[in-house]
Design a protein around this nucleic acid. Structure first.
Length: 571
DNA sequence: GCCGTTTTCGGCCCGACTGTTTTCAGTCG
């Protein structure tokens, strides 16, 4: 098993143990072990081979043994045993709001409910409401929860949640007793997938704010309605949580509700080591007096830490760096000087080369790189060699015409099944730069796919790897590929690995950021636009690049035109 | 199950809300 599989297996084991009613701290230990593995950049194979698993903080004898079995024998007897004990629908029931492991277990033990079908029937037969600690209300909630489960997957793209959050923020601002209003949660951390929108408010009159909130016209259901905390579900499915705090609590609350949970847990334990208590209301000493902090920066400072921007708060090593004052200066949108990876009417894009160039100039960019599809991708109208020549001539003419703006001649070449690029060498040599992407033959083994991509990386004509895992968020799984090896190879061959900014891709995944930083990997934040307006997607790519610890120097489309030309010329 | 500037046992983050209760367990974030 690869690291990602090991992690998901451990998480699955933790869930099943929870449903079995194991000690909650034992379960937490499994989650901690997962985090430790996620943050580990060294190859898991090597760590296992050299018997160094227990050197990782969070992994002890017990879990190490299970991991070794997964890596060496490619299976987990422990998981298999648990799966035999716990019916798999019980896991699905955890997705029903209001149902946790305890309630699910009670229903299973008392009534033998092991499938969603059973559960629905038991609700309809009023068998649930008579169980101890259950009641009519809970039974109703379960029934409507099953409906929601079927209707909405409960996960949403960042781009979708971002747009919805802008709408509800605008609505909330209509309430005139609000002093401060901020988005928190995973949305503020710019995570690619989100479950809900978290909002934080400072207000003179919390009751009015809450009433305004639950009266939002797009509400499907009010999940909770209290003085300090309320939750609604929108018709489009996603949940919105609102918290109201007092002015002097705001910085602490913002930090707390931004998360991540894992980051917060570690922050609290740092506070605890200093004899302090950190929660959403303040940073308290043993006399219950809180420090005064008017900003998040102050809170971090009070704990002896450099300020950690929200995107980094995933407990993947950022706190350790903050302690040493070594956090990177991250890229921001203003750093960008040009854009690569876009399609025109020469393949499957909507606009002409000129239109793309003019749009980019309007937005203040100094250069673009046109990359239509190559000949093998016939479904997307890939360019035949004669069309490439025609496009070259058009680009040359436009470059003559434009002042202090350059169009680079590029291509998004298919990486063919054997790892070769799509045109003959003669033509490849004439492009300024080449992006290599996989668009077919997805179903190779991991070893074959990795070899295919590395062969392309070693090709002297290749400048950049496009959407390295081929994933489509919430739609299509990534193809099997060993990203550790790909990143090593790309860094060694001076090949750029793009961050595809399309909201469905966001690929390279930010979780590779730590390894990428260690290897000094270059990236480029690419919109993969098929229409001029698609340049706006860059916003999503910036968020991912920041999550992935990229400073501006390692992102080639922040470079000046001369530096880009020099870099391309070397290939 | 893991860990140790409370170090081999005992603690592991903590508060709001709900629905069931009549003081609290369970869920959620």
């Amino acid at each position: 098993m690869q690291k990602e599989q090991v992690i998901s297996t451990l998480k699955h084991i933790a869930t099943l143990m929870e449903l079995k009613g194991e000690n909650s701290f034992k379960i937490r230990a499994f989650h901690n072990a997962c985090r430790a593995l996620e943050a580990e950049t060294e190859s898991l194979d090597i760590i296992v081979k050299e018997n160094r698993l227990t050197n990782i903080k969070g992994i002890g004898e017990g879990i190490a043994k299970k991991i070794v079995e997964m890596v060496v024998d490619n299976k987990s007897t422990w998981l298999e045993d648990l799966q035999n004990e716990v019916p798999k629908d019980l896991v699905k029931m955890l997705g029903i709001p209001g149902l946790g492991s305890k309630k699910i277990r009670t229903m299973y033990k008392e009534l033998g409910i092991s499938t969603l079908q059973d559960l629905k029937q038991a609700c309809l037969d009023s068998k649930i409401e008579v169980l101890p600690k259950f009641g009519k209300k809970i039974q109703e909630n379960i029934l409507s929860g099953i409906e929601t489960l079927n209707k909405h997957a409960g996960k949403y793209l960042f781009s979708f949640a971002h747009i919805e959050s802008q709408k509800i923020m605008a609505y909330m601002r209509e309430c005139n007793c609000i002093d401060k209003l901020e988005i928190a949660g995973s949305l503020r951390r710019r995570k690619e997938i989100t479950k809900d929108i978290d909002m934080l408010v400072v207000a003179s009159d919390s009751e009015t704010v809450m009433q305004h909130f639950v009266s939002y016209p797009q509400v499907e259901k009010i999940i909770g309605h209290g003085q300090k905390k309320s939750s609604i579900q929108l018709r489009k499915g996603l949940q919105v949580d609102l918290r109201v705090v007092e002015e002097h609590q705001f910085a602490f609350a913002l930090m707390y509700f931004t998360g991540s949970k894992e980051h917060n847990t570690q922050m609290r334990s740092i506070a605890k080591k200093r004899g302090l208590k950190l929660n959403e209301y303040g940073l308290f000493n043993d006399k219950e007096e809180s420090s005064t902090c008017s900003s998040e920066e102050d809170v971090f400072l009070s704990l002896g830490l450099q300020y950690v921007i929200p995107e980094l708060r995933e407990n993947l090593g950022e706190i350790e760096l903050a302690q040493k004052n070594e956090l990177p200066q991250l890229i921001s949108q203003q750093d960008l000087k040009g854009i690569f990876h876009m399609h025109t009417e020469y393949s499957d894009g909507k606009n002409t080369v000129r239109e793309m160039a003019e749009k980019a100039q309007e937005m203040g960019y100094k250069y673009i790189g046109i990359t239509d599809h190559s000949q093998s991708l016939t479904v997307a109208g890939g360019m035949k060699p004669n069309e490439v020549k025609k496009q070259f001539a058009e680009i040359d003419a436009l470059n003559e015409e434009f002042d202090s703006f350059r169009i680079f001649k590029g291509v998004e070449s298919d990486i063919l099944a054997d790892g070769s690029l799509d045109y003959d060498e003669d033509l490849l040599a004439q492009f300024d730069f080449i992006i290599g992407s996989i668009h077919g033959n997805f179903k190779m083994s991991e070893a074959e796919m990795t070899k295919r991509v590395i062969t392309a990386i070693e090709n002297p004509y290749l400048t950049m790897i496009g959407h390295p895992t081929g994933r489509l968020l919430l739609k299509r799984e990534p193809y099997a590929i060993n990203m550790t090896e790909v990143i090593h190879a790309a860094a060694e061959n001076n090949v750029v690995v793009e961050i595809n900014a399309h909201p469905f891709r966001l690929d390279l995944d930010w979780r590779w950021g730590k390894l990428a930083a260690e290897k000094n990997l270059l990236t480029s934040i690419n919109p993969d636009s098929h229409i001029a307006e698609g340049f706006d997607d860059i916003y999503y790519g910036i968020g991912i690049a920041r999550k992935a610890w990229f400073n501006a120097e390692r992102v080639i489309n922040t470079w000046k035109i001369e530096q880009v030309e020099k870099f391309f010329a070397k290939k």
